[in-house]
Design a protein around this nucleic acid. Structure first.
Lengths: 337, 337
DNA sequence: CTGTTAGCGCATTCAG
DNA sequence: CTGAATGCGCTAACAG
């Protein structure tokens, strides 16, 4: 535990200067003679000195930390590939700008409560909120405590007055639906994601946009979550319609994979009998047979963009509360549609 | 930024007591009258007071933080399902014991350097090291700086003198190889993981154990990493042997999936012509066709066990430097073998 | 049970 | 350019 608690005074002593000078040296400050600097450097070297984090944070008024909070349901896998990539992107730009990113998991009432406390105790300088659940208690935390934060998802902009970065879900789903239509698939079933998710809702809207008059509310299945079984259940549920439809547009890749698997099991050929599209372009898209035609999104860019926006805020640049930026998506044509 | 910096003094003032009393109250200490407690509680409520983290850490000598450091190559996906589950497990037990777990990503020279500094600055009370790369610079950090740490992987126990928790890789691979043998598959190709990985090496040993005399060093392919392409490359590389072998034992599921895909492409039937086994029991095992027979490991338990071990150390319970615990694995029989 | 005091390790005035 | 002094917000003796 307490090995050799070497403090700034120790190095000052060894270097033969006052510890104020050492502090100046450490903070890259001007006004330190070369001689002093050299001796301090030496002292630090032989003492293996490293400034104490807590003390520094207390004296200055920031931590150089940014917390990437990922909020999920307890049951689901914590880190989806898209989140993993966003983490990597954010970690990179934050690191390049002198911040250390730390990831916190909020997947239970307890952990949410703990994190809420942390936030209020000024644990970090800023927060990146990655929410994949319908629980907004954490979001509210930031509401009244005015901490710098950026969200990963567009929500009801009224309810959540802080900046967000999201993909153009609506436009993306519209585009791939039009792609289906152009291929002559007009009798489309839509498998929607969970209702609490803004992304889910926006993707459904995109589908409607493309379908226009052809949109049939009866041909929409509402999944409970974003997982594979949702797609399987949907196909089972609509088995009586399977002979009259020629395509299924899914809210995400997981669901599409579930749908394809179930379709295969029931003897339908994809895409010959029924074409299927996904959304996300996850690694799974390449594993499933046939390979999934889906909407690609650059998750790393997602993280980078969120981080950059937060950096702006941290730097005092004016950013509107309701500011949001929409990232582009693209269609990846493979075999399933 | 600085909204209403409410401190312990403010609540003391409002509650009409000295701030020493407030501190006692906050630390769940005895020696606080009901009257005082009540007033303090009220004051805290209406002031929205939350103790400052840095100050508390500075005064006490711990942070109530445990860092889960995940070390990966920059290119690879940061969070594999197994890591994600381990995170969840560790997060849960750590949280239950009053610690907040934070995840740090070391995927570049820069980030590794930053994290090293953090560690030396007593950023957290303890560390969980999840290494999936051959870079041991971080591990060395803990060596000379005697911080409480637990590793996820058995290494050269000489080089790395601190406790570790790992799966029984050798026994697991031995078991599934014996399973193959029992099914009459005796002409086996082995696709090994990257050479720097202890797990990789131990799994190979397990294969050898089971094969005994039959082991043929020429029928081993060494992949560069744990990813899918490794399995594909292996099959291509050994295409001249494909008619004489009847099974492939793979170092992990990814590789097995790559092998199966390539085998399918080349017209071989799995498992009829060639049986294939994996290791990890990742979600992918269910997606691939045929479903993968593999070695199951409980990653959540992995995280939990690591956390519990660290907790022991943190609580001052004696734990040998070279202590390690091996977690059991089990065979999951599906279709590929 | 409670007020007072002295640090925790460092940053930052302010003289010099 | 540098030493000394003050405070960051809180904990932990210490008297009372």
């Amino acid at each position: 535990m307490d090995t050799t608690k070497v403090t700034i005074r120790d190095v000052a002593h060894l270097a033969g200067v006052s510890y104020g000078t050492v502090s100046r040296y450490l903070n890259g400050n001007v006004h330190v003679s070369n001689r002093a600097a050299k001796q301090i450097a030496e002292a630090i070297e032989i003492l293996h000195y490293t400034p104490n984090n807590a003390a520094r944070s207390l004296a200055k008024h920031h931590t150089h930390l940014v917390a990437f909070i990922i909020q999920v349901e307890s049951k689901s896998t914590i880190v989806q590939p898209s989140v993993s990539n966003a983490m990597a992107g954010a970690n990179q730009v934050l690191g390049d700008n002198g911040y250390q990113m730390v990831i916190l998991i909020a997947n239970s009432e307890d952990s949410t409560k703990r994190i809420t406390k942390l936030v209020h105790s000024d644990f970090a300088d800023g927060y990146l909120l990655f929410s994949m659940s319908n629980n907004d208690s954490l979001a509210n935390t930031f509401l009244d405590s005015k901490r710098p934060a950026v969200r990963s998802e567009l929500g009801d902009s009224d309810k959540l007055p802080y900046p967000a970065v999201d993909f153009a879900n609506r436009a993306g789903q519209r585009a791939i639906t039009e792609y289906m239509l152009k291929k002559g698939r007009e009798r489309l079933l839509y498998i929607c994601g969970p209702g609490y998710s803004p992304s889910s809702i926006n993707r459904l809207k995109g589908f409607q946009d493309a379908m226009g008059e052809r949109f049939n509310p009866e041909l929409v299945y509402y999944a409970d979550d974003w997982e594979i079984p949702g797609g399987e259940l949907a196909v089972v549920e609509f088995q009586n319609h399977l002979n009259t439809i020629d395509g299924i547009v899914c809210a995400n890749d997981n669901i599409a994979v579930g749908a394809i698997n179930q379709l295969n099991r029931m003897g339908f050929r994809v895409p010959d009998d029924i074409a299927v599209t996904g959304f996300d372009d996850s690694p799974m898209a390449l594993l499933i047979n046939p390979k999934l035609t889906t909407v690609h999104q650059d998750s790393e860019l997602h993280g980078e963009t969120m981080a950059n926006l937060l950096l702006d805020i941290l730097n005092g640049n004016p950013v509107e509360d309701h500011h949001f930026t929409l990232l582009p998506t693209s269609i990846v044509e493979r075999q399933s549609a």
